[in-house]
Each structure stands twice: as C-alpha cells, then as structure tokens.
C-alpha cells in the first residue's frame, strides 16, 4: 500500500456547532439575556414547568420562550396564553436543537428587552445531549413515572446538566421509584449537579427552582 499516509486530524466532531454556541453565548452576555436550555423525555413536564416558572418570576424578569416541537404548535399556544412572548420553532422531524437553529429562533425576539429566554428542547433524552445550543445553563426534568434507572440509560444527558428537576413527586407514594438510588447514580455522573424535587401539579419545590433560576439570571444580566 505504497503512498498511503497517516494524516493527523485531532479535531472535535461538531466543533462547528460548539464554536457557534460559544459565539451565541458571547452575544447573549452583551445583550444581557440569559438562555436556559430545558430538556426531558416527552411528557415529563417541560411545558408545565415553564408555565409555573412564568407564574413565579415574570413579575420581576422579562421572559421569552423558544418552543421546539417536531410538528405542532400546542405548547407555544399554551405559553403564549400567559402573555409571555413564545416563538415556535418547528424542527420538521429533527430530534434536537443545535446552536444555529437556536440563533435563528432568537431572531424573532428583541433580546435587549428580555432577561431570560427558555428553550423548550425536543422531548428526547438522547440527541439534545450531544448538541450545545449556546445556552448559559442546561436543565433537565426526570419525572417519577419514567423510573429511577434513567441515569443508567442516558448517562450523557445527566452529565451535561446544571440542574435536574425530579418532577411528579406527588406520584412517589404510588411508585417504586427509589429517589436515593437515582440521586446516587446521577451524582456519580455529575458531582456538581443540583437536584430539586418538584411537582408541577401541587407546586411543591417550584419556589426552590424559581429562586435558583432568578439568582442565575440576575447574576448573568447584572440586575
């Protein structure tokens, strides 16, 4: 096999996306807008959490919501009914959002008027974990009915998030979900993660989440 040479590359796959995500973060810093990437499985409670969050903090912070959905407008309509600016980004079958898609979606907002934009990512625990959206913080929801074994099945997702919200804790009594075992599995993958137990239905724990988010936003935007 004469003439064959080994060419060193040593380049990150998806480095283009990472660079664009870094650019977006710089722009957000300048515009003083905090971007939160919210991820979970379908049905874990992303839209419910966003509605609860808006109810808690929209008095003091201006909020926009970027809804990613494979092909419907249901979530954006729900969020828009609260009076918050919601933009629907139909992904047309795509399983995740990446930085260029988010940048495009953000064009629909006047960022300088907003303290916080929440991305409701596509419901999926696999693909969104691989793509940096340009968000300042990543949060995920795991709901009790999904089971305490999810960190074992989707380790990357649990390892890239700053916050894990364990939703539907009002179901705990009816299930064999082992909260301590789940937490141990998560902390093993991500020692710095903050875990907050919530119920969007009863409102339990939502204040702790809203406080954390408000603090992070204020610190970032200097408000």
């Amino acid at each position: 096999m004469e003439g064959i040479q080994l060419i060193e590359i040593k380049e990150e796959i998806m480095s283009d996306n990472r660079d664009l995500a870094d650019d977006l973060r710089k722009r957000l810093k300048k515009e003083k807008t905090f971007l939160l990437n919210l991820m979970s499985s379908p049905g874990a409670g992303k839209t419910s959490l966003i509605l609860q969050t808006i109810a808690r903090i929209s008095d003091s912070l201006t909020i926009g919501v970027l809804e990613a959905d494979i092909d419907s407008m249901v979530d954006a309509e729900k969020v828009a009914s609260t009076g918050v600016h919601a933009v629907q980004l139909r992904t047309g079958g795509f399983c995740h959002l990446d930085a260029p898609m988010v940048a495009k979606g953000l064009e629909a907002f006047t960022l300088e008027d907003l303290d916080l934009v929440i991305i409701e990512n596509v419901g999926n625990l696999v693909c969104p974990a691989e793509f940096d959206t340009g968000a300042i913080r990543n949060a995920m929801i795991l709901s009790v009915p999904e089971g305490d074994d999810k960190p074992l099945k989707y380790p990357l997702m649990f390892s890239i998030c700053d916050v894990l919200l364990v939703n539907k804790i009002d179901y705990l009594a009816l299930s064999d979900f082992d909260m301590n075992a789940m937490k141990e599995r998560v902390v093993k993958l991500n020692p710095d993660i903050r875990i907050i137990e919530i119920s969007c239905k009863t409102g339990q724990g939502i204040d702790a989440w809203a406080d954390w988010l408000s603090r992070e936003v204020r610190e970032f935007v200097g408000k």
Binding site: G3, L6, I9, K10, E12, I13, E184, P191
Partner: peptide
C-alpha cells in the same frame, strides 16, 4: 469514597485518517 471526577469517557473527535 463516593465522590469522583471524570478522567475519560467524553471523547468525541477525529484522531487521524489514512489517505493517499
């Protein structure tokens, strides 16, 4: 002990290629 940090497992890159 039960507290750890990552040494490896998150790699995601192209090392090299064989070409002529």
């Amino acid at each position: 002990e039960k507290k750890f940090s990552f040494v490896s497992g998150r790699e995601y890159y192209i090392k090299n290629m064989e070409a002529e």
